[in-house]
Lab assay of single mutants.
Amino acid sequence: FIDQHRAALIARVTNVEWLLDALYGKVLTDEQYQAVRAEPTNPSKMRKLFSFTPAWNWTCKDLLLQALRESQSYLVEDLER
C-alpha cells in the first residue's frame, strides 16, 4: 500500500507531525526524525520520509500504514477504493 500509493500520500497527507511522532523510536531514528521535521512543507516532509523507506521491511511499512489509518483514515479509505 505504502509503495503503491507513494505519490498520493506525498501530495495528500496533512498531519505529518503526528506520523513522525508515531514512528519515532520504532522506525525512525532521532536523526531521521529531525531531518523530516526540518523540511518546510508537508509534501517535502513526506518525500523525506519516503527517502528512508527503501531500507524498511514490511513491518516498518505496516507501522506507517497503521499510523496513517489512525491519523488520516479518510485518506486511507479513499486510496483503498
Rank of each mutant, 00 (worst) to 15 (best):
S44A: 15
K61L: 01
W58C: 14
E31R: 11
V27T: 04
N57P: 11
V13M: 05
Y33C: 15
A35L: 11
H5C: 09
L63N: 06
Q66G: 09
A67C: 05
F1Y: 00
L65W: 12
N15Q: 10
S44V: 00
Q66M: 11
R37M: 15
L63H: 08
A38S: 13
Y24P: 05
L19E: 01
T14G: 10
R47P: 02
A7Q: 14
W56P: 02
N42H: 05
F50C: 01
P43H: 11
S51Y: 02
Q32F: 02
Y33E: 06
D30M: 10
A38H: 11
D78C: 12
Q72N: 15
Q32S: 05
T14K: 10
N42Q: 07
T59C: 12
R6W: 11
D3G: 02
L20A: 10
L9E: 03
Q4V: 12
L20R: 01
R37A: 14
L65E: 12
R37L: 14
W18A: 15
L75E: 06
T59N: 14
A35Q: 14
N15A: 04
A67K: 08
T14V: 08
A38Y: 00
E80Q: 13
P43C: 12
E39F: 04
N42L: 09
S73N: 14
L19A: 10
R12W: 00
A8W: 03
L49C: 00
L65F: 14
A55N: 15
I10H: 03
A55S: 15
C60N: 13
D3T: 01
E31T: 07
E31C: 02
Q4E: 13
W56D: 05
D3I: 03
L68A: 03
V27E: 04
Q72T: 04
Y33K: 09
T59F: 14
Q32T: 07
T53Q: 05
A7F: 05
T53R: 07
E77W: 08
S73L: 13
F52L: 08
L28P: 01
L49P: 04
L79A: 04
K26N: 10
D21I: 04
V36L: 02
P40M: 01
L68D: 00
E70I: 07
Y74S: 15
K26M: 06
S44K: 10
A8G: 06
D3C: 02
L63K: 10
R69W: 04
I10P: 00
D30P: 11
L49H: 04
L63G: 01
K45C: 01
R37I: 14
V13E: 06
P40W: 02
Q4I: 14
R37T: 12
V16G: 01
W56T: 03
A38N: 10
A38T: 06
H5Q: 09
K48Q: 04
D62L: 08
E39K: 06
L64D: 07
L63R: 08
V13L: 05
K26W: 07
K26H: 08
N42E: 09
C60A: 15
Y33L: 11
Y33P: 05
E70Q: 14
E39H: 03
E70C: 11
A67E: 07
A67N: 10
A35I: 01
I10G: 03
P40R: 12
S73H: 12
L79G: 01
P40D: 09
V16L: 07
L20M: 08
